[in-house]
């Protein structure tokens, strides 16, 4: 069997495991969809000022005024990519490191690359599904437009998916054990989601600058662009994708250097 065939079988096995593990599936899909339903309902019919602020007279200054859900649907789709690629993958890899599953695989001829291809491919499939589901729910319930630029949207989702998977692999190196994994994952993503303006647009120079250090902010920006919530030429913004790519390279370097296949012995 070729390495490609083995990798595809790994993807299939990972997908099976993901959907059969209700908790993982719920964690990956539940949060973005749930918040879409809550905030989408609350702010339905209102508008937001993407990348700018409303002036005292209610004018959107320095940005583009769009219906709230035109902004919120791509933001929640981006969060879905984060939960499936970053949160789920990180927690599942640390669990498997703790319970010896990674060690077992190291004792078989399965190449490490094929194993990684399996978890990555599976996470990407889940990510595409969560983005599609978010878009459908947003369109049907909240009249959000379909993604204005489907190809840039798909490329952004896949690129960000890979980048956040790799960052997830890198971060396992600093997670001591499976008990700590959900805390580390949430602590490293939720605050950044808020300061990156995933839920509300805001104008705070300090938080805004901090957010721009992290890839989450740039991913949201590229999703807003691809979905048409931000004006662009053709749905691409090279700068966003470049920052994501740089973070991906950093993550890869850390993973290659520090990734552990076995839990630390006491």
């Amino acid at each position: 069997m070729s390495d490609l065939a083995v990798s595809l079988r790994q993807v299939r096995a990972e997908q099976r495991g993901f959907w059969r593990n209700r908790v993982a599936a719920l964690f990956g899909f539940g949060f973005p969809i749930m918040f879409l339903l809550i905030f989408g309902t609350i702010f339905k019919g209102q508008s937001t000022c993407v990348d700018g602020t409303f002036s005292a007279r209610g004018q959107c200054v320095g940005g583009a005024e769009v219906p709230y859900n035109n902004f919120f649907v791509p933001a929640m789709a981006a969060w879905g990519v984060l939960t499936t690629c970053f949160s789920n993958l990180t927690i599942s890899v640390v669990n498997r490191r703790d319970n010896g599953l990674l060690k077992r695989l190291r004792g078989t001829p399965l190449p490490s690359a094929a194993f990684v291809a399996g978890i990555l491919g599976s996470a990407l499939i889940s990510a595409v599904i969560v983005v599609a589901l978010t878009a459908v729910v947003g369109h049907l319930l909240y009249q959000a437009p379909w993604p204005a630029h489907p190809l840039p949207a798909l490329v952004t989702v896949l690129l960000a998916g890979v980048v956040f998977c790799v960052i997830g692999l890198a971060i396992t190196a600093v997670i001591p054990n499976a008990d700590a994994a959900p805390a580390v994952v949430n602590f490293t993503s939720l605050p950044i989601l808020f300061i990156s303006g995933f839920f509300f647009n805001f104008n705070n120079a300090v938080f805004g600058d901090i957010a721009k250090v992290f890839p989450i902010y740039w991913f949201k920006e590229s999703m807003l662009t691809a979905f048409g919530a931000k004006p662009s030429s053709g749905g691409w913004n090279g700068e966003d994708l470049l920052v994501l790519l740089i973070w991906g390279v950093l993550g890869l370097a850390v993973t290659l250097r520090f990734f552990r296949w076995e839990s630390r012995r006491v």
Binding site: M1, A5, V6, R9, Q10, A13, R16, G17, R20, N21, R96, N99, G100, L101, K103, R104, G107, T108, P109, L110
Partner: peptide, 22 residues
């Protein structure tokens, strides 16, 4: 090995078959 888990959500046949491909 001692204490090494197997993918919990796959069936016996699926796991053996997956490893067979290695």
């Amino acid at each position: 090995l001692q204490e090494c888990a197997v993918e919990p959500y796959l069936t016996v046949r699926e796991v053996v078959d997956l490893h067979r491909g290695y």
